[in-house]
Design a binder for these strands. Structure first.
Lengths: 340, 340
DNA sequence: AATATAAGGCTAAACGTTTCGCGATGGGAG
DNA sequence: CTCCCATCGCGAAACGTTTAGCCTTATATT
């Protein structure tokens, strides 16, 4: 191994510059120092390749300059795209991003949330799993700002950044109704998950607004995973009077639905039209090209990072804030217009 | 906000237990203490809800219990699947995982590597971008263990965990040759990237082993991205004597190739057979079902985490070690057997 | 000339752990 | 009974920063 040099400390810098530790620390933290001293300190830092020891600084300031990010999956491009944006912005502000994946497991969610707290992260951004908020309330009781993504929780005051799920569903189903569809299936997620509830509400509201009857048997709930998308697509197609179109409300279930379509040699959109959820690459891979709801992942990530940085800087204006960001509908070849 | 209680320190625990700080610290670190004292300490910890302050501990031990992970993309399921495994294993050993995404940008790679060093991570796992090793050498000079994933680098001693790229390509192309293909195109990645070099070598070697002539115009180099996969697929199909099959050597370029096939209404496998790279979900989404090389992401993640933990524990047996893990070939409907 | 104010450098305590080395105690061997 | 050894608790220094408050010097005001 190469020569290992013991890193210089502020004491070395002070000694080299002929100044006190306090003066160097003052300079490091933006305080006023005489021009001649500033130059001496800067040369010392350069020559000694000094870097602040963040452990020592943290012990004094009680800050780690890290943010914990807790998500249900690292194999979900929706979440990882958001994290990508968050990590980039936080790093620009000197924060590192500790990523924890709780694998859709409530117990693991609690364990890893506590892990982040024990790691003394300055703030937490998380996609909550279900409705259990006790562990999140505990974190907030420790004065650690928590920001939720994609899902809101009742009974706990947190900033939230998410898509406008209700209007996303409303717009998607509206497109189907405008194209003559009246028997529209929807594959929702777990019933206790906020996004499921909102998307179902949008589905119902657009039916009411357009005076289209709702067949309750066309509303099914999956698990936001490939398997349930597959199974429920098959269930729909096996109905005596199947839907003419299906709206699938997350990416994984969209994957499953398409697998089922392929496996059963269902002709899309002749036998059934389909609108899925994220991502834009998938839309071009599937033939015929898939219609999808596109969520604003970049905007979600940017907004989440910006708001958490405000909280970390002590800015609690407009707390708790809820940001519902617009989605976009891409109607492609997977949706057919029905004759009257 | 709820009542904020100042966290208990080791002093509080010592006071409550009627013992010294040193005795409590000894207990915390697994030292021998009298049974009666152990009980007192454990009660004190429970009653006071004491948690070790990792900043103070780190200042003393010069360890942060964090590992930095530096990857080129967070929108690539290959990398994020590996990270998922790494994060889970490291957390079980008390390490947090700081994730940095350098977005395929060499300058950002250097910046974020330095960022991780400044954050005093105990070790680094990274997917290196190109052949420039100076910044990695600097990290190793600081006695921080670095483990490379997916790509090897010449001139720097690091542990490496990756797929057996040469044999992955060999086996994939072998399947094509065995099915009668003699004009086999390959879409490689950037020329200076290790995996590209290895996969091209496998392509060449299997041609030599089966005494099949190589047409150099059938070897093209993309950028490991969707655009180049798209463009090169079109280039192949516009040739006067196009290949009867194409082997695409990474996931993104496979996406691009399929988009090009869909856009140009190319009939697969009638007009061209295709073998792509990761992921298994994509294989079932595309119709006809896609043949792919499946990389052992879980195994890569597990192996990487295990080896780095060894290095972090001071175990340098077999250093530097290179682990080439086996891939798997799934031949599905996208490959046609040619008549003689 | 005297007094007040401002600027900037400095000393030393503090943050919360770890750990070295000392002292006390108890048990065993000769 | 004496000596030796092992065990365990303890005091205090140290890790590398930040920062309060003191001190010195220079400038401004009366």
């Amino acid at each position: 191994m190469g020569v290992i040099k013991i890193p210089a400390t502020i004491k070395d810098v002070a000694k080299y510059a002929g100044l006190s530790i306090a003066t160097v620390s003052k300079y490091l933290n933006g305080g006023n120092v005489l021009e001649e001293n500033r130059k001496k300190i800067e040369e010392a830092i350069r020559v000694l390749n000094f870097r602040v020891n963040e452990l020592a600084r943290g012990l004094k300031t009680n800050r780690t300059m890290t943010v914990g990010v807790l998500i249900p999956s690292l194999e979900n491009i929706f979440f990882t795209s958001i994290i990508s944006k968050i990590e980039n912005i936080l790093l620009q502000h000197g924060y590192s991003t500790i990523v924890c994946n709780y694998r859709e497991n409530s117990t693991l969610e609690k364990i890893k949330l506590e892990f982040l707290v024990n790691k003394m992260v300055d703030g937490i951004i998380m996609v909550p799993h279900g409705g259990d908020i006790s562990h999140i309330q505990e974190v907030r009781n420790k004065d650690i700002p928590v920001l939720l993504i994609d899902r809101m929780l009742k009974g706990v005051d947190c900033d939230v950044v998410m898509s406008d799920n209700l209007n996303a569903a409303y717009s998607a189903v509206e497109q189907l109704i405008m194209r003559g569809h009246r028997r529209i299936g929807i594959i929702g997620g777990p019933k206790n998950v906020y996004t499921t509830q909102e998307r179902i509400k949008g589905y119902i509201r657009v039916h009411e607004d357009y005076a289209v009857d709702i067949d309750e048997s066309l509303i099914k709930y999956g698990g936001y995973d490939i398997e349930s998308g597959y199974r429920i697509l098959e269930e729909f197609m096996e109905m005596a009077n199947p839907p003419t179109s299906i709206f699938v409300t997350n990416y994984e279930m969209t994957l499953g639905a398409i697998m089922a379509i392929n496996k059963n040699n269902i002709i899309m959109p002749d036998q059934v039209s389909l609108i899925g959820f994220d991502n834009i690459q998938l839309a071009k891979i599937v033939k015929p090209s898939l219609s999808i709801v596109v969520q604003p992942m970049d905007e979600i990530g940017e907004t989440a990072a910006r708001i958490l940085l405000n909280r970390l800087n002590g800015d609690y204006g407009s707390f708790p804030s809820i940001h519902r960001l617009k989605t976009e509908i891409l109607i492609r070849d997977s949706v057919k217009t029905l004759a009257h």
